[in-house]
């Protein structure tokens, strides 16, 4: 490859990386809260779908992306409330409930989409969040394109990750969350309401998963299609493990997945590359497997009571 085209190639890949990482990152940071408190939610995929559909339909009907995002978050919180009721109050197996949530998410969004939009004669596209070019910085060669020409939800991750880190590690609230995941009995003894903390953590998790889903329709594609999340919820679960249950860890590891997505999209559009596109599509999923296998030692840092109901 010539020098200039390969720089452009790299620039294109890197610019897409952050964008592709964003939905996974929102969901993964949310799941960090949930898992830190001891609740594993494999229903993220379903919650993301619910978030995506509610955000899309409200934004489409009202014309306001922000209203869509808000309702998407509310739908996520509601999903979390139900999930928490089953896993924390009824103490049902978290994997079973999570699997049910994935089916419900797929079923209800697919059903409503086909009922409301699939036969619609009206164009269904939204005017998505547009890239905000940071003045001056965005005109820096290479870096401008890669870092400073994104939409607001992508930039939002720069706020999210430090904020999540601060809350988890520098506040009493965060200490309680971690305590109920590591040692619920001790937390209980010193007066922390274990049930309430877990409810709140689960709902933070699903709210952020819903934001990740909403991103896909408000700031990435411009409309909802069935299965729009396509496994990102599951990849977020792997990202949490790979990121050692830390927000910054989730940030870097979701960027890694972003690279695979970006590469896959980019290579598919290159006419002179003869790799079957199915192999490229399989890349992020394959990468997830490799990551889980290669970094298993980090398992020891999983919250101690992950998956175990209290009392």
């Amino acid at each position: 490859m010539e020098l200039i085209p390969s720089i452009l190639f790299l620039q294109g890949i890197l610019a897409a990386t952050w964008r592709m990482a964003t939905p996974i990152l929102y969901a993964a940071v949310g799941e960090v809260f949930s898992e830190k408190a001891g609740v594993i939610n494999i229903g993220l995929e379903g919650v993301m779908l619910i978030g995506a559909f509610s955000a899309y339909s409200v934004a489409f009907e009202s014309g306001s992306l922000w209203l869509g995002l808000l309702v998407g978050i509310l739908a996520g919180i509601l999903s979390g409330l139900i999930f928490a009721f089953f896993t924390i109050t009824i103490k049902a197996n978290q994997i079973v409930v999570g699997a049910a949530f994935n089916m419900i998410g797929m079923g209800i969004t697919g059903f409503l989409y086909r009922s409301m939009y699939a036969v619609s004669a009206v164009p269904l596209g939204l005017k998505t969040f547009q890239s905000v070019e940071i003045p001056f910085l965005s005109s820096i060669p290479f870096f401008g394109e890669v870092l400073f020409k994104h939409n607001i939800m992508v930039y939002g991750t720069l706020l999210l990750v430090p904020l999540a880190t601060f809350v988890l590690y520098k506040t009493a609230f965060g200490l309680s969350i971690r305590a109920v995941g590591e040692h619920p009995k001790a937390a209980d003894t010193v007066g922390v309401n274990v049930v309430r903390m877990r409810y709140v953590s689960v709902m933070i998790g699903t709210a952020l998963a819903a934001v990740g889903g909403a991103f896909l329709v408000l700031a990435y594609a411009d409309q909802f299609v069935e299965g729009v999340v396509s496994g990102r919820g599951f990849i977020a679960l792997a990202v949490v493990v790979f990121g050692r249950w830390k927000p910054w860890g989730a940030f870097w590891s979701s960027l890694l997945f972003g690279i695979f997505y970006a590469l896959q999209l980019r290579i598919q559009t290159m006419p002179d590359v003869n790799i079957p596109y199915q192999f490229l599509q399989a890349l992020p999923y394959l990468a997830t497997l490799v990551v889980l296998v290669g970094f298993n030692k980090r398992r020891v840092q999983a919250p101690k009571t992950l998956g175990v109901p209290y009392k």
Binding site: G46, F86, V96, V97, A99, A100, F101, N102, M103, I104, G105, M106, G107, I108, G110, F111, R114, S115, A118, E226
Partner: peptide, 15 residues
């Protein structure tokens, strides 16, 4: 009626 409704019903059965 869209047949994907079945997924919803199945998930609800499990719940």
């Amino acid at each position: 009626v869209p047949s994907v409704l079945v997924f919803l019903i199945q998930g609800l059965v499990v719940l």
